[in-house]
Nucleic acid binder design. Sequence first.
DNA 1: GTCTATATCAGGATAGAC
DNA 2: GTCTATCCTGATATAGAC
Lengths: 222, 222
Amino acid sequence: MTEGRAAPTAPSSGGGFGKTSIRQANEELILAAAERVFARAGYSGATMAEIAQEAALPKANLHYYFGSKLELYREVLARTLKDWLVPTDFIRPEADPRAALAAYIDAKMRMSAERADASRVFANELLHGAPVLGDLLRTELRALVERKAEVIDGWIAAGRMARVDSKHLFFTIWAATQTYADFDVQVRAVLGITATGPAAQSRASAAVRTLILRGCGLAESE
Amino acid sequence: MTEGRAAPTAPSSGGGFGKTSIRQANEELILAAAERVFARAGYSGATMAEIAQEAALPKANLHYYFGSKLELYREVLARTLKDWLVPTDFIRPEADPRAALAAYIDAKMRMSAERADASRVFANELLHGAPVLGDLLRTELRALVERKAEVIDGWIAAGRMARVDSKHLFFTIWAATQTYADFDVQVRAVLGITATGPAAQSRASAAVRTLILRGCGLAESE
DNA sequence: GTCTATATCAGGATAGAC
DNA sequence: GTCTATCCTGATATAGAC
């Protein structure tokens, strides 16, 4: 994954072969730290010093590996975006609508729980107009949703589920699932809990799954 | 509304009576400008210079009226929060569940369209852990949702709607409606439109309303 | 009550020693 | 390839003239 990035201006260390493992390890360390810090402070709120401290590396190393704060931010986003779109694979014409949508929703709920920081970085980017990801949204994401919406429209035409606006269905599923990562504080405040454990997570998954499936005319109890 | 705030350190102008209208007008101007700038840049991304320019006032005036950037931010949030909770008034025990939820959803969708900036400021605050609003969420918001969830539980117990988790229902409604303000770029990118006009708005409202109502066993076509 | 000019500081970036 | 010390921009905040 780090393979695809344009090499920094620094020359490679010794022989003709690829990156040193120390470089790989440090880049990984920095990206993970950056994700955490960007998640809790946003792009402008995050400081290179804070990321360095979180990664337990000197500040100058971040610039050595990534050049600038913006470059580091781009990398964090790029690393995330791929994983973000994967769960749509469940949605294929020959699949059972109920099973496919249930699997999609569950996968998104699991990502909200397990990769909450990545979700928040992404949310922050969208909230501020997607200055970095905008083009990707208008091309790749749009094309992907176009394809998947057609699948759903096919299911509807075949009478396999209720009539819903397929694209807006995606907006609602994204919103309903990611809210548990992005607006986690609000959820915890309302539920009166201090941390979201496995029990709270499966209750949330069940609630969202039931509501959306029934909304699509695919009630689980049928 | 500005009445309730602690007075700045500045002495009041002349006689013993309240604020001059010039003060009121300027405060209003600054708050409106601040909402726009905080919405598009977040708290740390926003600069006092930018807000001043947007308000067409000299930078120092902002500090004269609001003391600090943080105080100004607090005011913008406070001004918003009240309006934010109002639509829940539709949800009362004696109301018709379908009509009440439809009205609530429509009101929230309208707020996403008409007060998108306020929604984004709010989203940004939540996304970063609600440092300012945290206490309010854990007290007022929690109590409000507790009361409204009881109303919904009552409807369910009376067999007037399907079994849903009432608190998670609120999370989903908030998420699904506010996503049209907060993640507007994503919606426009996927739909392939450059601006969200009245037509797109009513299509979105209808889609969300239909999906959620049917999810609550309150299909509109019944 | 209003605004210009400025103090002060934080944070991104880099030069250059090791 | 790594890190210390430093530069310098840009942003908050204020002093003090009007």
